[in-house]
Design a protein around this nucleic acid. Structure first.
Lengths: 252, 252
DNA sequence: AATCGCCCTTGATGCGTGTCAACCTGGGTT
DNA sequence: AACCCAGGTTGACACGCATCAAGGGCGATT
């Protein structure tokens, strides 16, 4: 059983137009009337708790999900408990885009901490997008952005070493959190070391050692899930050094 | 200079409706009239040759490209000649989807062999898609499929060993070629060992050794770029074994 | 037909990181 | 307060694959 903290807020009814994430989320650059139309199809459920699933691999695809608060991980489960973590999703990020093609979820989505999630029924959304050019364009851009992000991960997994991977992970967290108005240098990781390692293609032990090393080198201060970034420029340099390092290894 | 074989076919004017790839390409499930409308915005240039670029990283995004015949590789160039190969694209596959978001190409696309390419100006395409629901849906599916494919690659690069990667590569080529009506067990690789290695996150030498080993084990017959697959089931098994193998390594 | 150069192959060696094992720590339970 | 246990850390070791180095073969050019 997970800790059901007594969070006494009821079903959260923040409309898209009042949502602080509207610049990150679907309604980018839409007129107020169109935002209302979008708002009318979005479902908002009670907050979900650690371990709850938005959907599971194999289920029929019906809706996209947008993280409003909290965090979610997506992963492809394989037989007997093994899994491949595909990503961690922060507020404003959209989940389920990969399921449109097959009309079936190929991955599962599990909530990492108490989170508020918007559900967007895809069929109604698609109809709406057809009549709102800017929404349609937003959707294309979102899908495209996801592809671009995946390409970065391909590079990370294909060419970067362990140190570069963890540095890139920290930089990514920092950037995404700061876009959401949170501190870029002081944050809590809602996922376990194991999940980080799985995501980055590293063993847990390697992740742990790297956190220790980064701390010894004065780059970060780590206390369990609490991370303070002390020297972001150096970490960014470590993360980006891959281009130079790899171009030597894998040059033509 | 590349070998400009005297291929004496002029500008190829095969309309979408006559194209053998229409089941793989954009016009999936569209009415004949709508296919004509799509056809009217598609540009078809003279065949391109090995080494030609469809676009380069940093250029303004204007069009999507569809491979009609031949093959194309996409890659992110880094300073001084190094590169990360993102993918190899066969007939019916669409290139440039990652550029929609930023409105700028983040990767370059280079033709691997004499190829015919359709160019689809994106702005006009987007307008058209807004008025043809099935085309819009096709586009969502295509973008979504790309995301799903990238997720597979993430798993490959994150969790599979060298043998599993090359096996997966061969299986992928086999499947994609057979969908296009070509032999699933006998084909030519238009890319170099170096490019395969770069794509799979392996050194050239490792790729070479694996080809030799697969041949010694009777799984394939390799002669330079010509590959004959002798034991597809075993190769598929090697490629898929990752789920079982990795779930042990990276289990929760 | 001889030469050049690129791509590929093959062998020897070393490093990075996975694996195995033990221990530590903090949070939750009884 | 003592216990338990999952998650995390640390150390020792092994192995897969990158790296370095050398040689071979085919295609292109002359």
């Amino acid at each position: 059983m997970t800790q059901r903290k007594v969070i006494s807020f009821e079903t959260i009814r923040v409309a898209c137009k009042n949502c602080t994430l509207s610049q990150l989320c679907l309604p980018m650059g839409m007129s107020p009337e169109d935002v209302d139309r979008l708002d009318s199809i979005v479902k908002r459920s009670r907050p979900l708790h650690r371990g709850d699933h938005l959907f599971r691999s194999g289920e029929r695809f019906r809706s996209l999900y947008v993280v409003k608060t909290g965090s979610v991980k997506t992963y492809t489960p394989s037989e007997e408990g093994g899994e491949q973590v595909l990503g961690f999703h922060l507020p404003g990020e959209i989940i389920g885009l990969d399921a449109i093609d097959q009309d079936t979820h190929a991955c599962s989505a599990k909530v990492l901490e108490t989170s508020a999630i918007c559900e967007v029924p895809f069929q109604r959304f698609e109809e709406l997008a057809a009549s709102i050019p800017s929404l349609q364009h937003s959707m294309y851009r979102l899908l495209s952005k996801e592809i671009g992000h995946d390409a970065e991960m391909l590079l990370l997994l294909g060419k970067k070493n362990a140190e570069e991977r963890l540095a890139a992970f920290l930089v990514s967290m920092s950037q995404r959190l700061s876009k959401r108005g949170l501190s870029p240098t002081d944050f809590y990781l809602s996922m376990s070391r194991h999940e980080i390692g799985n995501y980055l293609g590293l063993a847990v032990e390697t992740v742990s050692r790297l956190f220790t090393r980064f701390q010894d080198e004065g780059l970060v201060k780590v206390d369990r899930k609490h991370v303070e970034i002390l020297d972001l420029p150096t970490i960014e340099h470590l993360a980006g050094a891959a281009q130079a390092a790899t171009s030597r290894k894998h040059s033509n």
